[in-house]
Amino acid sequence: MHENEHEMKYSTYIYVWLALVVLTWVTVAVASIDFGNAAVFVALLIAAFKSSLVVAWFMHLKNESATIKWMVATLFIVFAIFIGITFTDYPFR
């Protein structure tokens, strides 16, 4: 039934989890540093990195077919467009 599934190992997931915990600590730690306006970008950057770990390993997107990868890419492009074009409005009012 699952011959197309890649072999899964407990240890890989535990490493990923450790990385996520460390990154959470990093987010909290850097929050006290004053980056000014860049703070939100630093926070989002780390969040994006964390979520891509979850998506790639925990949701095993990295083992999925090209079709599904393209679909996920489409989703993020579309969402980026929604936010991007909305911002032709607010900063220019």
Partner: peptide, 13 residues
Amino acid sequence: VIWIFLFPLFYLI
């Protein structure tokens, strides 16, 4: 994943 974004956006900024 959604919480990973909610956390910094509401608690850390």
